[in-house]
């Protein structure tokens, strides 16, 4: 008697939990966009525009749900079963990881124009009022007494672009070799007092907590920080060389097909490439692909010499060489060399 009771009670508890979970899953007129940290404002604006446009063109009311976090953390969640219809992440390597596990086709990057990156960005310096440490280029960051703030490349997509931009500069110095590149990176990270887990954490540390002399940031994040924390208190310095950061977008096939949201999901991502989508991106300080719209914002987006991920042999190689366990970034932090 007593044993049966026990078992029944436990079963009831488990079933109750499961029922609670399934009730929420079956809402077809909703999309889940799993994105990285600095796109919050962008997608807040864009979702509003898309919902209105979709209502006009199809008569259907849709809801777009957002999830934001570090690009790597978000990738992990999608792999573990977070039901993302679309992913809009910080770098192609993260979506590649999803494709490798069969969540979407491996040719995802050819399914949309421009490497499936509707907008681009680059890495710039954010400095304090009057640029007291006179920071003009990457070489100035390793001077004694300069404190550099960047997030952790292990957890933040933006920080990986930071490292690539730094390497791009080191690589263009006279007499550059793999050793001098590593030495520069070592010197650079010696100046870093805090490694936050995400780009947003670093901006907060720099702007709000008052730590450091220069923040290595996404261009869009640097502009947003000035808007949020005071245009007069912070200035943007564009280095001589940076990197062309291409944050990619993709429909997650396995989820969209199962939930029957493919049409909606594809239309959603396509809308990023329309004049409206591009304009919203530009107003949120992402560089638009559309030349006509880019022309309207030239004052915000100065021309910088930019390396691309291809210069580093693509993400697979870059990831393995620099960011994997035992890679360049780990070596830079190993003492005794």
């Amino acid at each position: 008697m007593s044993h049966r009771l026990t078992r029944r009670g436990a079963l009831g508890a488990v079933l109750g939990m499961v029922a609670g979970g399934t009730a929420r899953a079956a809402d077809a007129a909703a999309l889940l966009n799993v994105s990285y940290d600095p796109t919050r404002e962008l997608y807040r604006d864009f979702n509003k525009a898309f919902v209105a446009q979709w209502k006009k063109s199809s008569g259907q009311t849709v809801a777009i749900n957002q999830s934001h976090g570090g690009s790597g953390a978000q990738t992990r969640s999608v792999l573990d079963g977070l039901q993302a219809d679309v992913v809009t992440l910080a770098l192609a390597a993260d979506i590649d990881a999803l494709a490798r596990r069969g969540l979407l086709a491996t040719d995802w990057q050819t399914r949309l124009p421009n490497n499936a990156s509707p907008y681009t960005s680059t890495i710039v310096f954010l400095v304090r009022k009057g640029n007291p440490k006179q920071i003009a280029d990457w070489g100035d960051l390793t001077k004694p007494g300069v404190e550099v703030i960047t997030p952790n490349p292990k957890t933040s997509g933006g920080a990986r672009w930071n490292v690539l931009a730094a390497l791009a500069w080191a690589r263009r110095q006279p007499g550059a070799t793999a050793e001098t590149e590593e030495a520069y990176l070592r010197a650079l990270f010696r100046q870093v007092p805090v490694l936050d887990t995400g780009a947003r954490g670093s901006t907060t540390t720099f702007a709000r907590r008052g730590l450091g002399d220069v923040l290595l940031a996404w261009e869009n994040e640097a502009h947003l920080a000035r808007k949020e924390f005071g245009e007069t208190d912070f200035a943007i310095v564009t280095p001589s060389v940076s990197v062309l950061a291409e944050p990619p977008v993709a429909v997650v096939d396995s989820v969209a097909d199962k939930r029957g949201t493919r049409t909606l999901a594809e239309a959603y991502l396509r809308h990023l490439y329309t004049a409206e989508g591009q304009d919203i991106a530009a107003r949120n300080f992402y560089r638009p692909r559309d030349a006509a719209i880019a022309a309207r914002h030239t004052s915000v987006f100065p021309t910088i010499a930019m390396a691309t991920i291809e210069d580093f042999g693509g993400w697979d190689k870059a990831q393995a060489a620099y960011f994997a366990d035992g890679g360049l970034f780990d070596r830079v932090f190993t003492p005794g060399k």
Binding site: G70, G72, A73, T75, R76, L79, A97, N152, K154, T155, T197, A324, D325
Partner: peptide
């Protein structure tokens, strides 16, 4: 514990 989180995010 942060290192656990980092490894998790690297899918390790």
């Amino acid at each position: 514990p942060l290192l656990i989180v980092i490894r998790l995010e690297q899918l390790n």
